[in-house]
Design a binder for these strands. Structure first.
Lengths: 189, 189
DNA sequence: GGCGTGAACTTGTCAATGGAAAGATATGAT
DNA sequence: ATCATATCTTTCCATTGACAAGTTCACGCC
C-alpha cells in the first residue's frame, strides 16, 4: 500500500530486489551497484543500506528468495524425477538472476539464517525426487549417489545454458534439451 | 628474465596473472582489484593497464590461459571418456580461479581472438572423447547428445563442488566422487 | 658512440562506488 | 498530543577503474 510520493517510499525493499534482478539479468552480478538501484527506485543512494545493511545483504536476500522459488518450482513439478530435473533447468532459465547469485557464495553471506533454511528446503525437494525412482534399477542401493548425479547433470546443463557456452545446435528450448539429457542418465523402462 | 629491481619489472604480465589467480582462489573474482594486484607486484597502480588495457582485458587473458590448460589436461587424460570427465573435474579443482572466470562471460571479452581459438580446441578435446564410446550402447546414434550429457554432468559436478554446495557426505576426493557420478551416465559393460 | 623510436612504467587526476555518520521526516502506539 | 521507531536524506571518506601526460629504459640504426 502506498504509491505515495512522500518521504517514505513504502515498498523500497521489494522494488530494490526487483531492480537488482533486472540489472543482473541484463549485465550480470558484477555490474550491480547499490547507487544505481537507488537511482532507479528514485531514492537517495544510502536508502538501500537501511533495508539490507550492505551489498552482500541485498544479495543474501536475493539468494534466499531464489531458494524459496526453487523449492516451490520443484514441488510444483510433481513427483517424477525427470519432471523435477526439467523444472530445475526451467527455474534457472526463468530466474537466471536468482540462480546466478545462489551459487556464488563469495557474493553473499551463506550462513544467514533464513537463507540456510530456504536452501535446506530446496535440497530436500531435490532429494525426495530420487526416492520415487523405480526400485529395480541397477543403482537402487545408492539413492544418494543417484541424487548427486541428477543434481550434477541438471545443474551443469543449466549453468552451461546460462553461460552461453552451448553450441547453437542444441536449439532454443532449454526444457526439451534438458529432458533429453536427463533421460540419458535415468533411461525409462 | 630479470629479477633486477629497475624501472622495468620485466615479468609483470605473468606476475599479475599469477597474483590474480591467488586472489580469486582466496576471495572470488568479485574481490579482484587491479590496484591490489599492482601493489602485490610492487608496481604503480596504472602499470597493469599497459599489459591488459583494462580489467576485462586481464580476465580475458586469464580465461584464455584457462582454456589452454583445460585442453592440455583433457588430452593428457587419454582417450577414455571416463578419464576425460574426471580430468575435467580435476582441472576445475586444481585451477579453480581459471575455471570460475572461464564460464562468466560477463567478466571478460568472450569474442577475443585468442580466447575463441583456445575455447575451440578445448571443445574439440571434449567432444572427441565421446567418439571413443563403445558402439553397441543404446544412444550410439546421437553422439552429440551424449557429449552434451557428459559435459553437463562433469560441469555440474565441478561447479557444485567449487561452490561448496555439496553435502559433506560426498567426501573430500573430487575425482573419486566424479568418477562415480560419470559412471552412472555411461555404465561400463 | 650517439640518436631516436617505442615499450614499460610512474604520477596525477577524475568520476563512480561502497560504506559510515548524523540529521530529517513520517508512522503508529499510547 | 507525544514520543519511539522505522524510514529516508545529506554529507563525508577511502577505494576503485580509467585516462592523460610525463619519465625511464631497451634496442636497433647510423
Amino acid at each position: 500500500m502506498t504509491g505515495t510520493r512522500g518521504y517514505h517510499h513504502g515498498d523500497l525493499r521489494r522494488v530494490l530486489l526487483a531492480a537488482a534482478v533486472r540489472v543482473i539479468e541484463e549485465s550480470g552480478p558484477a555490474a550491480l551497484s547499490l547507487r544505481d538501484l537507488a537511482r532507479r527506485a528514485g531514492v537517495s543512494h544510502a536508502a538501500p543500506a537501511h533495508h539490507f545493511g550492505d551489498k552482500s545483504g541485498l544479495l543474501t536476500a536475493l539468494a534466499t528468495e531464489g531458494y524459496r522459488l526453487l523449492a516451490e518450482a520443484l514441488h510444483a513439478a510433481g513427483g517424477d524425477l525427470l519432471d523435477r530435473g526439467v523444472a530445475y533447468v526451467g527455474f534457472a532459465v526463468d530466474h537466471r538472476a536468482h540462480f546466478e547469485v545462489m551459487f556464488r557464495p563469495d557474493l553473499y553471506r551463506c550462513d544467514a539464517h533464513e537463507l540456510v533454511a530456504a536452501r535446506q528446503r530446496a535440497g530436500d525437494a531435490l532429494h525426495s525426487g530420487v526416492a520415487a525412482l523405480p526400485e529395480g534399477r541397477p543403482t537402487a542401493q545408492d539413492p544418494q549417489g543417484d541424487a548427486l548425479a541428477a543434481w550434477s547433470i541438471v545443474h551443469g546443463f543449466a549453468t552451461l545454458w546460462l553461460s552461453g557456452a552451448l553450441p547453437p545446435r542444441v536449439g532454443d528450448d532449454p526444457r526439451a534439451a534438458a529432458r533429453d539429457v536427463i533421460h540419458r542418465l535415468f533411461p525409462r523402462p
